[in-house]
Design a protein around this nucleic acid. Structure first.
Lengths: 342, 342
DNA sequence: TTGAAAGCGCTAACAG
DNA sequence: CTGTTAGCGCTTTCAA
């Protein structure tokens, strides 16, 4: 609305007594400029407090210097660390970060969409199921740089993917439960359908059972849904089936928190009566009573790595097909391990 | 790098058999267009999967349709809810959200800065101490729309401010401790210097003491610093002074968590030996042992409200000078209140 | 109700 | 090493 004054490249050029092309060269470090000239330009920049107009340079250079982050919604303990990693990466590379949520679009009123894409970013990171396959395919077709975070690309599309070693993490956790703690009847609270992390964590669970000659029992599986409420409901359901189990593996810590509430409510003590473990190692897990044994997922690192891959894709046209980040077993009291200094 | 095809306004105009001016009018709902014509344009838009080029329209219209969020760093439990509120607001108004951290600038290499400002946003939200007074003053001088979130503007600048009723919240909490729980020697863990929330929470504490004729005792005050580690250290320090106290009021929940650890370590039971309360009601507070009595701060609402004020400022040139959001007392067991269903 | 045309501020050839 | 100039894709007068 208001028409505030701004120094433009012309002002700088005039003040420094050079052409705007030279100013542009100095600012972007493109092309040779005599040091004396460059200094005059830099002085003018400082004196006028000049910053380039982002839209103008974007239009002229066909680069936005911005990367987009697409997510379904901002929620949970996952989000903060992830964004920290992403932000750190974009800042280090000198890019801006634009964030779009696809959840509950209030803007359906208009026919014209303003999504993240070729027209406002140099590349985007797609988190989980935040964008449908058609749009992903379209971006792929026009060769727009995209990186998938915690969700592998649609079949047939060679898009870089960054995620956790979910299967291995779950495997190590269940191995530990079986081998070190001696449990054999281990219930599983699976995550939401369609979320990739869910799938691989279940695979790790099954793989571990199989490796120890323990038969997979569908009655010992319920859906925790990656949230507290569903985790609680899932355990109640499990309990009501009457099949005994010695431990519960919740596919994420949020559902483990709900599971803990349900177990306590049923009068069961953790870990004396039943062991409980989760996955992710979100902050509250440490404070639970008892503290939760879990698998630490390098959330921030994954965000950071997604940026690395995206920048590489933007700048060189190539990136790693798949980057799987290692997870770490975090043993606390909820699995019956001897108390340690917490 | 890659040169992907994009439908431009010219393509749409050609396909619809109209001029680009008409397309622009239809898309922006500016000016009268015959319904039949408008429909042809809309069809062409859909057929070509057209989205306007953000930079081009920004350059032409001198509006970016973007609001900027400036923060020092992405951390803590505070960040997620705040961003959720901000994102929801920007989306509802059809704005994009650009995020900048000012912490640990890796980009110091260059003389030319690309901060948030007139050149890449229509307005910005400044969170806490993320921007220095000089730059804020400059933005104010050129009448660039700015809203301060959880930090009041530099003296003399009439910039809208959104925050919590910190003083009242702290006052109610301490009143409760004194009146309902009968404590009189209440220690205080203050927040970091220079953070506004710290200051007002301490004022509420002092006000309550004064109202109950309890003398303020500097020996009962230490600095918790809004983080777990410092909260722990502060309580250790308090304990070492040898002055007895019956309760600890930590100026935020993070330091309360640290305080709890320190108390336990000293062999004290909460709340039997000593009561503990915090401020904010972050997620872990509920899971502590015992669950933490605290003051719930409407973090998400504050973010949302900051956007409301900023949009108002952008669109009408005016906004509320000050928006203080009410807080709510959350009573749990850590203050010695009778156990309730947690 | 529509179209023509002039930029918005900058980058990137192309000349010199 | 430096300057001139032609756009980038769009909005916005001004005319018709």
């Amino acid at each position: 609305m208001s028409e505030y004054s701004r120094a433009t490249i012309d002002d700088v050029a005039e003040k420094a007594g050079v052409s705007i092309a030279t100013v542009s060269r100095v600012i972007n470090k493109t092309g040779q400029v005599a040091e004396a000239t460059a200094n005059r330009v830099l002085d003018a920049v400082t004196a006028l407090n000049y910053s380039p107009h982002a839209a103008a340079r974007g239009l002229a250079s066909r680069r936005t210097n911005t990367i987009g982050l697409m997510l379904r919604e901002i929620s949970g303990e996952f989000f903060g660390p992830m964004l920290r990693g992403i932000e750190a990466g974009t800042r280090e590379y000198g890019f801006d970060l634009l964030i779009h949520c696809t959840h509950a679009s209030t803007q359906a009123a208009s026919k014209v969409n303003y999504p993240l894409g070729e027209h406002n970013a140099d590349g985007i990171i797609i988190f989980n199921e935040s964008l449908d396959n058609n749009e992903i395919a379209r971006l792929y077709r026009i060769q727009f740089p995209v990186v998938m975070l915690h969700r592998s690309p649609p079949t047939g599309l060679d898009i870089p993917y960054v995620g956790f070693e979910n299967k291995l993490g779950a495997r190590k956790l269940v191995d530990y439960l079986i081998e070190d703690r001696g449990y054999r009847r281990i219930a599983f609270l699976r995550g939401p359908d369609g979320i990739e992390d869910s799938y691989w964590r279940e695979m790790g669970y099954r793989e571990s059972l199989a490796a120890h000659n323990i038969e997979f029992d569908a009655d010992l599986v319920a859906t925790g849904g990656f949230n507290e409420y569903q985790g609680q409901a899932a355990v109640s359901q499990l309990l009501s089936r009457g099949k005994p189990f010695e431990a519960v593996f919740a596919a994420d810590d949020d559902s483990a928190i709900g599971a803990l509430a349900a177990l306590k409510q049923a009068g069961l003590h953790v870990p004396e009566d039943i062991a409980l473990v989760g996955f992710d190692d979100i902050r509250p897990s440490h404070y639970l009573h008892p503290p939760l044994t879990t698998v630490r997922a390098p959330i921030e690192t994954a965000g950071r790595e997604a940026v690395n891959q995206l920048i590489s894709l933007i700048q060189t046209g190539r990136a790693e097909h798949e980057t799987l980040l290692p997870t770490e077993l975090i043993i606390r009291r909820s699995c019956g391990a001897p108390a340690k200094s917490e």
